[in-house]
Design a protein around this nucleic acid. Structure first.
Lengths: 100, 100
DNA sequence: CTTCTCCGTAAGCTACAACTAACCGTAAGC
DNA sequence: GCTTACGGTTAGTTGTAGCTTACGGAGAAG
């Protein structure tokens, strides 16, 4: 996947991410609450992990996944940067229309 | 498209969005600066428009597109909500580990 | 050592998204 | 009126993401 945006764009990954936002969970537990198979959840977790959005921890035979706050931070930075740019352009455009 | 996240996930739409963040532009001008055909840009703009991320305005035969700040606001709200959730879960988990 | 549980990975299929080429509609200019 | 410029829409193709099934590996329990 290219960036963290694309990772969270997928609806199923959003659902997984929201579940993990409540509390850390194992792969099987996630799959039990979602309408997809366990391998599918595992693949999604791999994508989220590569983007730095989640972290995994071996817990016996199970593998517990939790959210990595740093991942969301990167998205917020991107959004804030373009948020400011968009607002600046919007204000500038509004001022120009007033002069006309 | 499902949500605004998926709209901005596409790299080409991100490029278009960043161009419009600098200043409003027409479809042909956007296509001239991007490595895709004009219909492709038009289709991407349609997606962005449906998500409320951009607004269009007829300017003679040309059609000028600009960013709609309200669109980014929705994403920020979603992000902030889950940002708080993730942080809360993270802190709670950290506290529990201390007790063990 | 064997068995069971839990998970990751590979192979294969299917569905959808992104792109181009071609067409049509509309506004400006002669 | 005709022509040109600009943009939206459609049809069709192609690449790729997401899913399932099947398999293999690692740890816990007996």
């Amino acid at each position: 996947m290219t960036n963290a945006f694309a990772a969270l764009a997928e609806p199923m990954r959003q659902a997984i991410f929201e579940r993990l936002a409540e509390r850390p969970m194992s792969v099987g537990e996630l799959a039990g609450h979602l309408p997809v198979s366990r391998p599918a959840v595992s693949q999604h977790l791999k994508v989220l992990k590569d983007c730095g959005l989640v972290r995994d921890q071996a817990r016996g035979t199970r593998r517990v996944y939790r959210i990595d706050p740093a991942g969301l931070g990167a998205i917020r930075q991107w959004l804030d940067r373009h948020w400011d740019l968009a607002l600046a352009a919007f204000v500038e455009e509004a001022e120009r229309e007033v002069k006309e």
